[in-house]
Simulated assay, not measured.
Amino acid sequence: MRFAPSNEHTAFAASLGELLRGSDVPGIARAWAEGDHGPGLALWHRLAELGVTALLVPEDAGGLGADAVDLAIAFEVLGYHAVPGPLVESAAVVPVLLAGSAAGQGWLPRLAAGESLATVAVHPHVPHALDADVAALRLSVTGDEVRVCTGTGTGPLRSVDPARRLFALPPGELLPIGCGAAFDHGVLAVSSQLIGAAQRVLDDSVAHAARRTQYGREIGRFQAVKHLLADVAVAVELARPLVRGAAVALAGAAPEAARDVSAARVAAADAAHLAVRTGLQVHGAVGYTREHDLGLWLTKVRALIGGWGTGSFHRRRVREALTGAADGSGGGRT
């Protein structure tokens, strides 16, 4: 399956990137980690004006009625800039859960307009809800049961990413809806974020290697450094088509969509992990400092790799889809 972005996709990504480049997202992420949500919510409203929060909301609910391909394009840019907040939950998962339901008639227009944020826990893969103290709508999914929770429950719990505030939601009221492909949309969104983050770390590492000198030469001219960066570039370029191909399959409700989404998730996570490891090597000691922006992507990638299903779960999912054999083991933990 081949995917090439349309002119509309390219223009949308460029507009979103321009907005985020001028928004001091690293400063917003640090403020969010400290509990100051004001700058982040202001950015959220600007993202809503651009249509990010309305992508998967049906047109009759005030949204754009877009599909998983548009979602993948947007979330790669969001990952490139390390935007904090419950983006996956509000823009990718909850609109799919609530589409066509009575509950959606009240919530979806608010989500599309950026007036409200939503979060969701999907057991066992996503046991904790992100930013439940900021979200107006909190959902908990177990199997095919979807419940709406009125409180934030236990939290915030610590994450490797300081900008991620996790909560164990309390029991809630059962909603008469199913979960459909909501989980796969969440996995796709995370995979796209990982590709964007990997590309950002690669770009920053290349720029640093062109500036940093040792023994009178830029370190980017050393063959060992070139090879490290080339390996990352290859990994990202091989993973990106898998993510975009999975978006096409999911948008078309293809029978193999779940398999493709999991395969994309594995490749994106591996590429992002290689990117941050290499980024630390290239940046050296400065990359470990709290003041350096590299840390924002390092911790975000580490958290995303462990979320929305473990690597072992997604590899097993692909294997079972290819062989038709299930081993009966659980879905992993995050």
Rank of each mutant, 00 (worst) to 15 (best):
R46P: 00
D203S: 01
V83P: 03
L117R: 15
A82M: 04
R316E: 07
A249Y: 12
A253K: 14
A66T: 02
P127H: 03
R138K: 06
S6I: 08
R316T: 11
D203V: 08
A247W: 02
V225C: 06
D70R: 04
L194I: 11
A253D: 07
A230C: 15
F75C: 09
E291C: 00
L111K: 00
R316F: 06
A271K: 08
S191C: 10
Q214R: 14
L41G: 14
L16F: 09
N7I: 15
R302N: 12
G309R: 07
A269S: 12
P39W: 00
E49K: 15
A269D: 11
L174E: 11
R211Y: 01
V69G: 15
D70M: 09
A275D: 12
L304P: 03
E256F: 00
L229K: 07
G104C: 02
L16A: 12
L43T: 02
L157F: 07
L111D: 10
A198R: 11
E256H: 11
M1E: 00
A258H: 05
S15A: 14
R221Q: 13
A271F: 07
A33G: 05
T142G: 09
A118T: 08
A263W: 02
K226S: 07
G104L: 01
V69A: 15
L16Q: 03
E320H: 05
V187L: 15
L139S: 06
G331V: 14
H81C: 03
E237C: 03
A48M: 08
G22P: 08
R317C: 03
L47P: 04
G309C: 09
T150A: 09
T152G: 08
T53F: 15
V248I: 12
G104S: 06
A102I: 08
R302K: 13
P255E: 12
T323Q: 02
L43F: 04
L108E: 08
G245S: 11
V77H: 03
D293Q: 00
V94K: 01
L78T: 09
V232C: 14
V126L: 13
W297R: 10
E59T: 14
L87E: 13
R316H: 01
G330Y: 01
N7M: 07
A321I: 06
T150F: 07
E320P: 02
E145Y: 09
L137A: 07
A181G: 05
H185D: 13
A230Q: 14
P127L: 14
L280M: 06
V134T: 15
A198L: 10
H81Y: 15
F167S: 04
V96Q: 11
V286L: 13
E34M: 15
G17M: 12
A224S: 07
V77L: 08
M1N: 09
V318D: 07
S101N: 14
R302S: 13
A197W: 00
V148S: 11
P156R: 03
L174M: 09
G79A: 00
V94Q: 03
I195R: 06
L130N: 11
G85R: 05
G79L: 01
